[in-house]
Design a protein around this nucleic acid. Structure first.
Length: 270
DNA sequence: AGCGATGTTCGCCG
DNA sequence: TCGGCGAACATCGC
């Protein structure tokens, strides 16, 4: 699930559950998720310290340590956070468990091992190093900023929305949702949009991301809480379009399967 | 049993 | 240099 709205939910969760609690130890259960640090170093760096605040940029979650430095978390295609008190409740696919002195635990859950956890001294440097564009939520709703950002951009709309170096946080699912809400075909050339279209896009990105975050999409049953007008729960070939009832189609864009309604998102501008 | 899957990175091609 | 595409990564669910 982890695109921007999911990661934002995890950030809020970490804030509510795991902030300002002293780490007793860190147990790395699978070293594949470690990004440029050993299990031993991660444990030694966190032991006796607290996470004091969080940041999110795109799909990256960062948690500041009380003595400088940041824990960096990325979830890949699968993953979540789980805070629990009973050690026996350790969830399946827990790859790193942070044990706190209060007897509670925070699990970094990552089923398919494509996520990464690391440490960095400077959050801004880390973000710059990942070549991430502006955070999509931070930019959302800002029409002037969207116009500036999209000026001169070429290629297909879906590719542009998913380009993390262009705009950070939107992935395959939410690019589909945004384009559906816009009534735009995924392969529509970016430079065919009018300035008014870009304004609408800014507003649509705001609406889609805010709505998803408010619905707690990152958690169990999140998709079902979305409004009926959303495509997301119906991202399947042949599923009924929420707007016209027609059949949803699958279309490969940039090597990934996207879903759209051919009737509501026509190939040529209306 | 094979295929596809919410992400990132890399190589190839035009 | 940019943009498009496909593979690889690892594992699981359908």
């Amino acid at each position: 699930m982890p695109e921007l709205p999911d990661v934002e939910n995890y950030r809020q969760y970490l804030d509510a559950k795991a902030l300002k609690k002293t780490v007793e130890q860190v147990e790395v259960k699978n070293t594949k998720v470690l990004d440029g640090i050993s299990a031993k170093d991660l444990d030694e760096r966190l032991r006796g310290h607290q996470l004091v605040r969080t940041r999110r940029h795109g799909k990256y979650l960062l948690a500041a340590l009380d003595d400088n430095g940041w824990l960096t978390l990325h979830f890949g295609m699968t993953g979540t956070l789980a805070y629990f008190d009973d050690a026996a409740a350790d969830p399946r696919y827990d790859r790193i468990r942070f044990d706190f002195e209060n007897g509670c635990h925070l699990a970094y859950v990552n089923q398919r091992l494509l996520g990464r956890v690391g440490l960095t001294e400077d959050a801004d440097d880390f973000i710059a190093g990942k070549d991430l564009g502006p955070d999509a939520l931070a930019l959302a709703g800002d029409e002037a900023a969207f116009r500036t950002r999209f000026a001169g951009k070429r290629g297909q709309m879906k590719s542009a929305l998913m380009d993390q170096s262009f705009l950070a946080g939107i992935g395959n699912e939410y690019s589909d949702e945004i384009l559906f809400q816009m009534g735009l075909h995924p392969k529509m050339p970016v430079d065919s949009l009018t300035p008014t279209d870009i304004d609408r896009l800014a507003v649509t990105v705001r609406k889609v991301l805010d709505t998803a975050i408010d619905c707690d999409v990152g958690w169990e049953g999140g998709a079902e809480r979305l409004p009926d007008s959303f495509l997301l729960p119906r991202r399947k070939e042949g599923a009924p379009c929420p707007r016209c009832g027609g059949q949803i189609k699958r279309l490969k864009t940039g090597g990934r399967s996207g879903y759209h309604c051919p009737k509501c998102q026509p190939e040529s501008p209306k």
